[in-house]
């Protein structure tokens, strides 16, 4: 994915660079990384809110990355999105009935059928159906996110891209939404692409996880393996930076503190983008970008590092 630079002077920014992954039906892939790593851009490309510069996005075997608006229409039904800030992603002038029914109406449903389905969806996501004629501002953050989820589910999607769905919510409400998303997945057989910076939440909801750094996937694999034995030095640092809600464990912990900030995608370092912050960096890392490779035989995990493995 390239974003064209402004004017003639600035070069285009490669926000996402050669990212490849699969999401199977009914599974959850977590996409984690820090700000600017390209995780949201990736999510938006999947639902075709953005068009990739090159590469393919295959949905049920068919490349959708070059479809025009009309051709996309039937596909859009199956690929839906949930956003971070529930209030700003809901139109304040529309009632909940309208917010949820909108996608149905757009896809040719009648007014009465759409309203009936909206009532059903409100019940499904744990909202009181009698509140259907209220406006978004009358709902708390957690309830508004339920509305956003109900809207995403209106057309019976197969894949929901959830971009930081709980990070704007109060801590005591986050668990409700996590549980709701897990229940819905079970009941409806949904697949999720769960984008988040909170590694604890991702660990809870995902089957597999992909770690991104500066537009590339640096490690991808089964959640258990990535969390228990991270192979990329960035994954290791990321996991070690998360504060644990346990003072004794915090004191006992040995942390890897990275130096410096994530680099800007506008001027990525040569070679491995992580090398300026990496304790393991050697000469090769400064010149050659590592490609994703299998970590161990028989394990479905790949890592992009010249020196993968335990620190």
């Amino acid at each position: 994915m390239h974003f064209p630079g402004r004017g003639n002077r600035s070069a285009p920014v490669r926000a996402v660079d050669g990212v490849s992954f699969d999401v199977a039906a009914g599974e959850t892939l977590g996409l984690v990384g820090e700000s600017g790593c390209g995780k949201s851009t990736t999510g938006r490309m999947i639902v075709r809110l953005l068009e990739p510069t090159s590469g393919t996005i295959a949905y049920e075997g068919r490349d959708i990355s070059r479809l025009n608006r009309r051709e996309l229409r039937p596909v859009r039904k199956d690929l839906q999105m949930v956003f971070q800030d529930p209030h700003s992603s809901l139109n304040p002038r529309q009632t909940v009935a309208r917010v949820i029914a909108d996608p149905l109406l757009a896809h040719g449903s009648s007014e009465s059928a759409a309203r009936a389905r909206a009532v059903e969806l409100m019940d499904l996501v744990g909202l009181i159906p009698e509140h259907i004629d209220r406006y978004p501002h009358e709902f708390s953050g957690g309830q508004a996110q339920r509305i956003g989820i109900a809207r995403a589910l209106a057309l019976d999607p197969k894949l929901v891209v959830a971009d930081e769905p709980v990070s704007a919510l109060d801590v005591s409400v986050q668990a409700q939404i996590v549980n709701l998303m897990e229940r819905l997945q079970k009941e409806l057989g949904l697949a999720y692409l769960f984008i988040a910076h909170d590694l604890s939440v991702v660990k809870r909801v995902c089957d597999r996880v992909a770690v991104m750094y500066l537009g590339r996937v640096v490690e991808i694999g089964a959640k258990e393996r990535v969390y228990a034995a991270p192979a990329h030095p960035y994954t290791q640092a990321l996991l070690s930076a998360v504060p644990l809600p346990d003072p004794a464990a915090e004191r006992a912990r040995e942390r890897i503190t990275l130096l410096g900030d994530p680099p800007s995608p506008a001027s990525p370092p040569p070679g491995c983008a992580f090398h300026p912050r990496c304790a393991r960096a050697a000469a090769i890392c400064r010149v050659e970008a590592p490609i994703l490779r299998g970590v161990a035989r028989g394990e479905e995990r790949e890592v992009a590092c010249h020196f993968p493995g335990a620190g």
Binding site: E34, H197, L199, A237, V242, P243, R255, T257, L258, D261
Partner: peptide, 11 residues
């Protein structure tokens, strides 16, 4: 802040 930067600031 990002979590790796958060760790730096807390330190």
């Amino acid at each position: 802040l990002d979590v790796t930067v958060q760790a730096q600031i807390l330190e």
